[in-house]
Amino acid sequence: MMVENIVTIIAIFSLSAGALGVLFGALGLLRLGDVYQRMHGAGIIDTGGAGLILFGLLLASPEWTVSLRLVLIGLLLGLTSPTATHAIARAAHFAGVKPLIKTSPDAPIEKGANE
């Protein structure tokens, strides 16, 4: 009985943290400066948010077949989301989209890649 309670509490904590992570990721997608910076916001959704939500569901899952599916979804997201993000970054780079560069916190933002 005691153990079940602890597992439920961890699951709730993980779900809430994941929900917060997803919200912050989407906020970053909206707020940050240029395409390359927004990719970091999308990265939070795909790694932290998705991982914590799936972990919370894993602890709440009733059967082992359900747990297996959740683990598979996590693995799949972990393998495909960085590849997709890298593909977008590479495509933007080759299409000539220059990232905003700021070498120190006080320096002004300048446009152009240091290649």
Partner: peptide, 28 residues
Amino acid sequence: FDRVLAVNSIGSLAVLAICVYGFFDGRP
């Protein structure tokens, strides 16, 4: 590329929403 990135994120969020809805409805 902003749009592709946003659509990719929407896809990830849809995957998560489907998972959570399955648990919410008791139909894994």
